[in-house]
């Protein structure tokens, strides 16, 4: 696996973990362990997405690096393409 594939795989896992805990918290809003779990992984997710955007291209449109003078949001592949 390339560094990009490794980081993207890691981001897939962290994002999924958060998607799941958000639903759990919707029905268990005072569960302290779940709240801490959310806080921990949310911080990791934000750092990972920021790092990925810096080196490999944006995952969200508020993380687009304009240093190369091109709108990279539409340069990198979309996730249904095989190269993604």
């Amino acid at each position: 696996m390339s560094e990009q594939e490794k980081l993207l795989y890691y981001i897939h896992q962290v994002c999924f973990v958060l998607d799941d805990i958000v639903l759990y918290l919707d029905t268990h809003p005072t569960d302290e362990r779940a709240l801490k779990y959310y806080e921990h992984y949310n911080r990791i997710k934000m750092e990972a997405i920021h790092d990925y955007s810096m080196y490999f291209g944006p995952l969200t449109d508020d993380h687009v690096n304009v240093e190369n003078n091109v709108w990279e949001w539409i340069v990198t592949p979309f996730p249904w393409e095989m190269e993604a």
């Binding site: 981001i11 897939h12 994002c15 995952l59 969200t60 979309f78 249904w80 095989m82």
Partner: peptide
């Protein structure tokens, strides 16, 4: 709504 440029679970069908 915001959009994340990744699938929630990867799809790689050859």
């Amino acid at each position: 709504w915001n959009y994340e440029k990744k699938l929630q679970y990867p799809v790689k069908i050859t």
